[in-house]
Amino acid sequence: MSTKEPQKTDILQGTLDLMVLQTLATLGPLHGYAIAARLEQVSDRSLRLNMGTLYPGLMRLEQRGFVRAKWGVTDNNRKARFYEITAAGRRQLASERAGWDRTASIMHALLNEQR
């Protein structure tokens, strides 16, 4: 069924949303495989995205109006679905990013103090 392990996926999805939006914001329109490849590359191959995670995530971003998608043609002349960040997506990215930075700095301060 669809609603198993909500906690784990939620955390992952929140982060995934941020990563995908950031990727699209820097690199412009990309298809799903390219997004996955980029994340894999940036993370030094430690982050391998499952299709069953990536595509529903993209669809959710699309449904929320943060990305828009249309079928296009790759450099190799293959039909592919390209995702592009929207204005709402950029706003979402900015606010998520601020939140992330805040969390990170709090964690940083806390962990350094503990030491």
Partner: peptide
């Protein structure tokens, strides 16, 4: 294998597409 099964991914997508 690496990308996750096609059938499972389809199922996840269908779940996300509509209201199950």
């Amino acid at each position: 294998l690496q990308a996750g099964g096609l059938a499972q991914s389809m199922e996840a997508l269908r779940d996300q597409r509509g209201l199950r």
